[in-house]
Amino acid sequence: MVVDTIFLAAAIPAVLFAGISKGGFGSGAAFAATPLLALILEPAQAVGLMLPLLMMMDVASLKSYWGKWSKEHALRLALGAIPGVVLGALVFKNISADGLRLMVGLVAVGFVAYQLARSRGHLNTGKTFVAPFWGYFWGAVSGLTSFISHAGGPPSTTYLMGSKLGKTAYQATTVIVFWWINLIKFPFYLGLGMLDRGALSTYPWLVPTALVGVFIGVRAHNMIPETIFFRITYVLLTITGAKLILDALT
């Protein structure tokens, strides 16, 4: 993995963006880093590169949100995620690079479509997914999509939006759940050879960037409206998702 100007121009903004989201500002948007990186790296490389960084962001975020999560919602999502991660590993093992590009691209574009539909009132999750069963179900979907492209946020949000949690409790629940999901993903990534040793040369650049992003996200959580952040996210995801889909199909 070559650390050159093109790599840094894509990776530093992507990781900073993910750190800000992980810190609590623009929750659920952290996975935008993966489609951005997949434009310059093989999809498996992009996903593997991000996992240790996301795990570090999880640990950095835990201190600020420790004990503020909803135990019952976190437990359902965490338990449901286990079979989802196993299924994700099976999918990843048996799919081509173009298949991965297509899946990452579809998840990116699908995330934007989902958020827009929900914001305009076309999807009402508030009364639909409150039963305990849905916690396990959406936990499994989160485990699957998180394994493929670190995109577990939208499925978990679908469940948590109906739980009437406060902003901080919601963020704390997602932090502890994805700390767990990323932890159980690690041995599978290792076994599938997705953790490239060449990525070690990038971490002197990316680790400080990730920590700065988390710091900004925690500070911005209670201070700044998220509208602009999400608009930027949607534009980036639409462009990168469409590019990945086009590359996969052509």
Rank of each mutant, 00 (worst) to 15 (best):
G110L: 00
F111D: 01
V112Y: 10
A113H: 05
Y114R: 06
L116W: 10
A117D: 09
R118C: 05
R118W: 09
S119F: 06
R120M: 08
G121A: 05
G121I: 09
L123H: 07
N124V: 11
T125S: 12
G126T: 06
T128S: 14
T128E: 09
F129K: 03
F129Y: 15
V130P: 14
P132Q: 11
P132C: 12
P132A: 10
F133Q: 11
W134R: 06
W134I: 14
Y136P: 03
Y136R: 03
W138Q: 07
W138N: 11
A140N: 02
A140Q: 01
V141K: 01
S142Q: 00
S142H: 03
S142N: 04
L144M: 09
T145R: 00
S146N: 14
S146D: 13
F147I: 06
S149H: 02
H150M: 07
A151S: 15
G152A: 07
G152Y: 02
G152V: 06
G153Q: 10
P154L: 05
P155W: 00
T157G: 08
T157C: 04
L160R: 08
L160M: 11
G162D: 00
G162Q: 02
S163K: 07
S163P: 01
K164L: 10
K164S: 15
L165M: 15
A169S: 15
Y170K: 05
Q171F: 08
V175T: 14
I176E: 12
V177I: 13
F178A: 13
F178W: 10
W180L: 06
W180M: 04
W180S: 01
I181V: 15
I181L: 09
N182M: 09
N182I: 12
N182T: 13
K185G: 13
K185H: 07
F186G: 12
Y189M: 06
Y189D: 08
L190E: 05
L190K: 08
L190V: 04
G191Y: 10
L192I: 08
G193H: 03
L195Q: 04
L195C: 03
D196H: 11
R197F: 13
R197T: 10
G198H: 02
G198M: 03
